[in-house]
Amino acid sequence: MSDFLLPDDIVTLARRVVEENAAAGRKIVLAESCTGGLVAAALTEIPGSSAVLDRSFVTYSNEAKQGELGVASDIIEAFGAVSIACVYAMARGALENSDADVAVAISGVAGPGGGSDTKPVGTVVFARLEKGQEEPEAEDRLFENTGRSGVRRQATLCALELLLP
């Protein structure tokens, strides 16, 4: 475990993200919702992360997604905050409001409540957008419901993997 009590697998992957992005000369930006800053915390645990992490937006509320990242209210109303459309807009807003080369956005249902038939607890949606790319890459995952911490841990690992060059 690291000094900050992050699991070794997260710290190991974060180290790889920092090293590989530094070697590629790439800056990254994050737009986190359900992970609440865990991806940024993992990256900043690594010495030298300031060469890679430009900034991180923790936009937990819908109002924050709209105000900080420019997510249109009609996207949230039509599709919800846990949707491909929302994380697309989050990634685009993060990239537009930073000096980064690549953005990763995350939104999900960590539980224990808040799930539905169409978006059960463990549903997490990710988007990755590189500068100059027209459309973000996106995916939704249904992680095993291992409790709130478990879902957030799995989402953090997935987001870190998306940040590898």
Score class of each variant (00 low, 15 high):
42 A>E: 07
43 L>D: 11
45 E>I: 12
45 E>S: 15
51 A>V: 09
52 V>Y: 12
52 V>C: 11
54 D>S: 06
56 S>K: 03
58 V>F: 00
58 V>A: 04
60 Y>G: 11
62 N>H: 11
62 N>G: 07
63 E>V: 15
65 K>W: 09
66 Q>E: 14
68 E>Y: 15
68 E>R: 14
70 G>D: 07
70 G>F: 04
70 G>Q: 11
71 V>G: 08
71 V>T: 10
72 A>H: 06
72 A>G: 07
74 D>E: 13
75 I>M: 05
75 I>R: 05
76 I>M: 12
77 E>V: 06
82 V>Q: 02
83 S>M: 13
85 A>T: 05
85 A>Q: 15
86 C>E: 00
86 C>Y: 00
87 V>Y: 06
88 Y>T: 10
88 Y>H: 15
89 A>M: 13
90 M>H: 04
90 M>T: 01
91 A>S: 14
91 A>N: 11
91 A>Y: 08
91 A>P: 07
92 R>K: 15
97 N>V: 04
99 D>V: 01
100 A>T: 09
100 A>C: 11
100 A>G: 05
100 A>I: 11
103 A>H: 04
103 A>S: 14
104 V>A: 00
105 A>S: 14
106 I>V: 12
107 S>W: 00
108 G>P: 11
109 V>F: 01
109 V>D: 00
110 A>L: 09
112 P>M: 13
114 G>N: 04
114 G>Y: 04
115 G>F: 08
115 G>A: 14
117 D>R: 13
118 T>N: 09
118 T>G: 04
119 K>V: 00
119 K>W: 00
119 K>T: 05
120 P>T: 14
121 V>W: 06
124 V>A: 01
124 V>C: 03
124 V>H: 03
126 F>T: 02
126 F>A: 01
129 L>W: 01
130 E>C: 14
134 E>W: 09
135 E>M: 07
136 P>Q: 08
137 E>L: 09
139 E>D: 13
139 E>S: 14
